[in-house]
Measured scan of single mutants.
Amino acid sequence: MGFKLLSKLLVYLTASIMAIASPLAFSVDSSGEYPTVSEIPVGEVRLYQIADGVWSHIATQSFDGAVYPSNGLIVRDGDELLLIDTAWGAKNTAALLAEIEKQIGLPVTRAVSTHFHDDRVGGVDVLRAAGVATYASPSTRRLAEVEGNEIPTHSLEGLSSSGDAVRFGPVELFYPGAAHSTDNLIVYVPSASVLYGGCAIYELSRTSAGNVADADLAEWPTSIERIQQHYPEAQFVIPGHGLPGGLDLLKHTTNVVKAHTNRSVVE
């Protein structure tokens, strides 16, 4: 069995187990497998329904001669939608809004960016022009300005110390501490036991640490421990890039980060 097929099978099995364990909360999309990078042309966006009122959005972007996937989250909030992270750029984010209108038909009224990198804030200006209120932590807003990236308009308070959590509509926002970046936030959907790890969490097929220019490698494993301790009931975990899975993604990420750190020390 090929690795790609095995990865998709694991996603399907995880979703099936969740649907059985929580039949009222989960209505997993039966329309197909989780979209992969090879299936999404740059400039297009796919939506994948995880649970009743919960979707991931998947886009792709060219970077350094390669094409990478990027995940975000959409959560229903009454007759409105909360968006977590842009679709990595203005063109993708405009396509995301169009796809949401086509498939869901509810307005996106608020959006949260989970850290300051372009795959999370690139497209904020498109959201703002569409009347979406954009939010991020003060740290993310400051770092985005320093980096020359787009800056969300509103500040999220109460997320300055490791372990801080605040309720934001249908989700809980959690600051686990520094990891992929010093400002990275985690998003949890309690009604569906869905954990969105953003770039602080890796997919299972990833074996290298990737972009760690703004990471705190020493603190990252401790931050992941905080996530595990705060959300032990999480059933569906979405990484910032690639295929979702279960809580095993947290341990896998820790292993990859520690291996990278150990290699760096040896070198």
Rank of each mutant, 00 (worst) to 15 (best):
L24S: 14
A15N: 11
D164N: 14
L81Q: 00
A21Q: 14
S137L: 11
R46E: 08
A66C: 07
A21E: 15
G197C: 05
F26I: 13
E150I: 04
T93W: 00
C199S: 03
S223A: 10
A192C: 04
K258L: 11
Y188W: 14
D214A: 07
Y188S: 02
V265Y: 12
V45I: 09
D52R: 10
S191Q: 12
A192F: 07
G169K: 04
A87M: 00
G122R: 07
S264H: 13
S31N: 10
R76A: 10
A200V: 08
V126R: 06
R141Y: 04
A95T: 11
S56F: 08
F116A: 08
Y231D: 01
N92I: 04
V28W: 08
P41Q: 12
P239H: 00
K8T: 15
H154C: 05
V37I: 14
K251L: 11
D216Q: 08
T140F: 04
T207P: 09
L106A: 10
S27L: 11
D248Y: 09
L185R: 02
S205H: 09
Y196I: 02
P176D: 00
R76H: 09
G246D: 13
G131Q: 07
E147L: 11
L204P: 05
K102Q: 11
I40N: 06
K8Y: 15
G53F: 08
G246E: 08
A95D: 07
H252A: 03
R110T: 10
R141G: 02
F63G: 15
T109V: 13
H57D: 03
V108H: 01
S205Q: 08
T153S: 12
D52W: 09
S31K: 10
Y188M: 04
L10Q: 15
F168A: 02
G245V: 03
F116Q: 03
S181E: 01
V194Q: 00
V126G: 04
T140P: 03
S62R: 10
F63I: 15
F116E: 03
E44L: 09
D77G: 08
I201P: 02
V266G: 14
S264F: 10
I17T: 12
R110H: 11
D216F: 04
G242N: 04
G240L: 04
L143N: 06
K102P: 06
V124T: 09
N184D: 06
S181V: 02
G169L: 04
E225C: 04
L82F: 07
E33N: 10
F63V: 11
H241K: 00
T114W: 00
N71V: 02
P107D: 08
N92D: 03
T60W: 11
K102E: 12
S22A: 12
S155I: 13
I186K: 01
T182E: 13
T222N: 13
V75H: 03
H117C: 00
G2H: 15
E145C: 08
H260R: 11
T253V: 00
A90C: 04
V265M: 11
G43V: 04
N255C: 06
E203R: 01
T14H: 15
V54H: 01
E203C: 04
H57R: 04
R141I: 11
A15Q: 09
I100C: 01
Q103R: 14
P221R: 07
A136L: 03
A136G: 09
H57S: 04
E44D: 10
L217V: 11
T14L: 10
G123D: 05
S16A: 14
S70N: 05
R76L: 12
T261S: 12
E99Y: 09
A200R: 01
F168S: 03
I151N: 08
D64S: 14
V132Y: 00
A90L: 06
F174R: 01
S205C: 04
E233I: 09
N149H: 10
K8L: 07
V75M: 05
R206P: 05
N184V: 00
